[in-house]
Design a protein around this nucleic acid. Structure first.
Lengths: 99, 99
DNA sequence: TATATATTTAGACATTTACCTAATTAACTA
DNA sequence: TAGTTAATTAGGTAAATGTCTAAATATATA
């Protein structure tokens, strides 16, 4: 989870993920969307890859990046468990009801 | 979202959230659970508070910390939207079916 | 083969982060 | 009121982070 949270803790990287929802892109096309140098974007892509959020596949001289959301499942499960554990385990406990 | 991701991007802070699932605790009781000084924990609690993940209420000389999971809803929605957008918008598109 | 293009790697730098110790603030209690 | 306890604030430090420029690598093409 550490790499995942680290990867998500940056607006540029989250924007990259959002971009890739529209379909695969190569590194250059991604870099074009940001006011930042290619090496910087390359670094961000590397962190996303380390977290398993994107996959990089070489296609000739280009490198294609695609989204991989399966890693997010773990995070999703963690979040959902919070919503649940917020209530007492015993579901017979009275909660506020409209009278 | 920035403060939220920042707050979650630290194992100690995530452990504090996990701790608070068991019920409210004051700063000292939280600090006791970690091999770290009180000022350091105080700092972590501050970041969690800034993100809206915990609420601090003074009770005499103690400060009570309680979990607030409503902030996680936003993150949850963001994550779920990823799971969806991964598939083409058009739901009539053929997917792999067992033959 | 020489040149151009796509991308990464290397190295430097400023900022942020996580931690510590020491000092401060606030509240309780003998 | 003096002393103790709970917690934060202040200030310092080492490590991590995000960015840049310059150099390197790999592929394509004239």
């Amino acid at each position: 989870m550490n790499n995942l949270f680290k990867a998500l803790n940056d607006p540029t990287r989250r924007q990259i993920l959002d971009l890739l929802r529209g379909g695969d892109l190569n590194a250059g096309d991604i870099a074009e969307q940001f006011d930042m140098t290619k090496p910087s974007i390359s670094h961000h892509l590397d962190l996303l890859r380390q977290a398993g959020l994107v996959e990089a596949t070489k296609q000739g001289q280009f490198i294609n990046y695609s989204l991989n959301t399966t890693v997010l499942d773990e995070l999703l499960a963690w979040l959902i468990s919070f919503q649940k554990k917020d209530e007492p385990l015993n579901s017979t406990t009275k909660t506020n009801q409209p009278s």
